[in-house]
Measured scan of single mutants.
Amino acid sequence: MASQGTKRSYEQMETDGERQNATEIRASVGKMIDGIGRFYIQMCTELKLSDYEGRLIQNSLTIERMVLSAFDERRNKYLEEHPSAGKDPKKTGGPIYKRVDRKWMRELVLYDKEEIRRIWRQANNGDDATAGLTHMMIWHSNLNDTTYQRTRALVRTGMDPRMCSLMQGSTLPRRSGAAGAAVKGVGTMVMELIRMIKRGINDRNFWRGENGRKTRSAYERMCNILKGKFQTAAQRAMMDQVRESRNPGNAEIEDLIFLARSALILRGSVAHKSCLPACVYGPAVASGYDFEKEGYSLVGIDPFKLLQNSQVYSLIRPNENPAHKSQLVWMACNSAAFEDLRVLSFIRGTKVSPRGKLSTRGVQIASNENMDAMESSTLELRSRYWAIRTRSGGNTNQQRASAGQISVQPAFSVQRNLPFDKPTIMAAFTGNTEGRTSDMRAEIIRMMEGAKPEEMSFQGRGVFELSDERAANPIVPSFDMSNEGSYFFGDNAEEYDN
């Protein structure tokens, strides 16, 4: 993207840094990872977990959730003011799984939030270390993106479920800051804005008074975040219109849905970061690795190297396929839920299948599930090659597409044709070009129609051997075009429920 120079890199967003050079960025990201790792080690000690239990991804998720809940100030305040039966607002906890007599047992633990905050700050040299908290939120978000298709949420806001490739980060909490905003897809931002506008339509006082002023500035800020994701002048001009509207209503909703559809071809720039579970960072720190000293990046080879040398386990339900569970977590670790499966298959070195073909449910185990038949197995999170994460949407291309997802959002900077089903997408653009945004709409449609099938995206960008740390010898991959490109292809993934 041309304006790259004016933006802070995501590592800076990730670490609240002012302008830093590459070495400083690597050190501050490393410091953040160190903090998460030290916190995780301490929690495993508190909970008396064995090494194996500490490497269980379900335990990692519970521990991450506990610290996120302990620092969720708004919710904590709300819980104190609106006490609900049987919930102690000062405590947080969740299921911890232990191996007892050759069987997995679930144990519900409860801790004072104050105590968890103390352990977290102690692991982070006394700081609140917001960057580390956001990092864990993005890992949870990436896992949700890989596990669930947001059909219901899309339909509720009037969008087409086939636009799911635009929904990265749709389950990120509001408090995820600049680093969170960077990884949100165009569809996620559109959905947040539509929800806001709908509230304004239904509630006369939404934009009024002292609160209304705050609401208005939040609305304009979200519009600017979305505008910054678009790469064409016409899309940005249309966002200006939406932002400046005196009284946002149905016309703005129409414009936003139009823009979301246009992003299936004229893709937005959305950041991709490899955020790993805390149970990967903990053992690495415990083994003596100093992330701050060595430096770390979320968008280069580092996460690949770390996963190459990590042992992570997962509980497996009786009829689940461990290899499929591994694929789910591998995609989440690489922030690749909406990437082209052919690119992923090449990088991973084994075939990556669409969601609907995987015999696996989510990673988390519900409290009512029976533990008797639970097994555990090693997650295979290694890769054959590594590639640089991208934040450009890439230019655009036609490809055989599917009944489910009709476009992709690249996660890796790797040369390819970008699949999208042009006739299906263009069919949504018939007729409606009147109104105050008509010239911009016409211009956007013209650009979409001009998108050429034979153009290559990320020209000359390749993948790298894991021994090639400096990215000196790019390998331009070859793809098996007979395979499906979309992950949520004609899909039956479970729906995400809060």
Score class of each variant (00 low, 15 high):
A2N: 00
Q4E: 11
T6W: 03
R8M: 01
R8Y: 00
R8W: 08
S9T: 11
S9R: 00
Y10L: 14
E11L: 03
M13C: 08
E14Y: 01
T15F: 08
D16E: 13
G17V: 05
E18I: 13
E18F: 09
E18L: 13
E18R: 00
E18M: 03
E18Q: 11
N21C: 14
T23M: 08
I25W: 03
V29N: 02
K31G: 13
M32Q: 01
I33L: 15
I33H: 00
D34Y: 11
I36D: 14
Y40K: 00
M43Y: 08
C44F: 06
T45D: 09
E46M: 13
L47G: 11
G54W: 05
G54P: 08
I57N: 12
N59L: 11
N59Q: 04
L61F: 11
E64C: 11
E64N: 07
V67M: 14
L68Q: 10
L68W: 08
L68H: 14
L68E: 05
S69M: 06
F71G: 05
F71T: 06
F71N: 10
D72V: 07
E73P: 00
E73M: 02
R75M: 08
R75H: 07
K77I: 13
Y78H: 15
Y78K: 01
E80Q: 11
E81K: 07
A85Q: 14
K87N: 06
P89A: 15
K91A: 01
K91I: 00
K91E: 07
K91S: 02
T92L: 06
T92V: 02
P95H: 09
P95Y: 08
Y97T: 06
Y97L: 04
R99L: 08
R99K: 15
V100F: 11
W104P: 02
W104G: 06
M105C: 14
R106Q: 08
L110Q: 03
K113E: 09
I116A: 08
R117D: 03
R118I: 13
W120I: 07
A123Q: 04
A123M: 06
N125M: 13
G126H: 09
D127H: 12
D127W: 09
D128L: 14
D128R: 06
A129R: 13
T130F: 03
A131K: 00
A131W: 02
M137A: 04
M137K: 13
I138S: 06
I138D: 05
W139L: 13
H140N: 11
L143D: 03
N144W: 05
T146Q: 05
R150A: 05
R150V: 01
T151S: 14
R152A: 04
L154R: 02
R156K: 06
R156G: 08
T157Q: 09
T157F: 02
D160Y: 08
P161S: 15
R162G: 08
R162T: 02
L166V: 02
M167L: 15
M167Q: 08
Q168V: 04
G169I: 10
G169H: 10
S176H: 03
A178D: 11
A181T: 02
A182P: 02
V183H: 03
V183Y: 05
G185D: 11
V190D: 02
M191A: 01
L193A: 10
K198I: 10
G200A: 05
G200I: 08
I201H: 02
R204G: 04
R204S: 01
F206E: 07
W207S: 03
R208W: 04
G209V: 09
G209F: 09
G212I: 09
T215L: 05
M222L: 03
K229W: 09
K229Y: 03
F230I: 07
Q231R: 14
Q231A: 13
A234T: 07
A234L: 03
Q235C: 15
M238F: 01
M239K: 06
D240I: 05
Q241S: 05
E244F: 01
P248I: 04
N250E: 04
I253T: 13
L256S: 07
I257R: 00
I257Y: 08
F258Y: 12
L259Y: 03
A260K: 03
A260M: 11
R261Q: 13
A263C: 15
L264D: 02
I265M: 15
G268T: 14
V270A: 12
K273Y: 04
K273P: 07
C275Q: 05
C275W: 06
L276M: 14
P277Q: 11
P277R: 10
Y281D: 07
Y281F: 10
G282M: 08
P283F: 13
V285C: 15
V285F: 11
G288F: 12
F291E: 04
E292K: 10
E292R: 12
K293C: 03
S297N: 05
S297M: 03
G300W: 06
I301T: 04
I301W: 10
F304R: 00
K305A: 08
K305Q: 14
L307N: 02
L307V: 07
Q308F: 09
Q308H: 15
S310L: 02
Q311D: 00
Y313K: 02
S314M: 02
L315P: 03
N321I: 11
P322T: 15
P322N: 11
P322C: 13
S326A: 07
S326N: 14
Q327F: 08
V329P: 07
A332F: 06
C333N: 03
N334C: 15
F338A: 13
F338Q: 15
F338K: 01
F338H: 12
E339P: 04
E339Y: 03
S345E: 09
F346S: 10
I347Q: 01
R348E: 09
R348V: 07
K351W: 05
S353K: 13
S359V: 14
T360A: 10
R361V: 14
G362V: 05
V363N: 04
V363W: 00
S367L: 02
N368E: 14
E369S: 08
M374T: 12
E375R: 01
R382I: 02
S383F: 01
A387E: 05
R389Q: 02
R391C: 02
S392G: 12
G394M: 04
G394I: 12
G394E: 12
N395L: 01
N395M: 05
N397A: 11
R400L: 03
S407M: 13
A411C: 15
F412G: 00
S413M: 05
V414N: 00
R416W: 12
R416A: 03
R416F: 01
R416T: 07
R416V: 01
N417K: 13
L418Q: 04
P419S: 02
F420V: 14
F420M: 11
D421Y: 09
K422A: 15
K422Y: 09
M426L: 15
M426G: 00
A427I: 07
T430H: 07
E434V: 13
E434L: 12
R436H: 13
D439V: 11
D439G: 01
E443S: 09
E443L: 01
I444G: 04
M448N: 05
E454N: 00
E455I: 14
M456N: 12
S457M: 01
F458R: 00
Q459K: 14
R461E: 09
R461A: 14
V463W: 04
F464H: 14
E469K: 11
A471E: 06
P474F: 01
F479M: 00
F479P: 10
D480E: 11
D480K: 14
D480Q: 12
S482L: 00
G485L: 02
S486G: 00
G490M: 04
G490Q: 02
D491S: 02
N492G: 04
A493C: 04
E494F: 00
D497W: 05
N498K: 15
N498A: 04
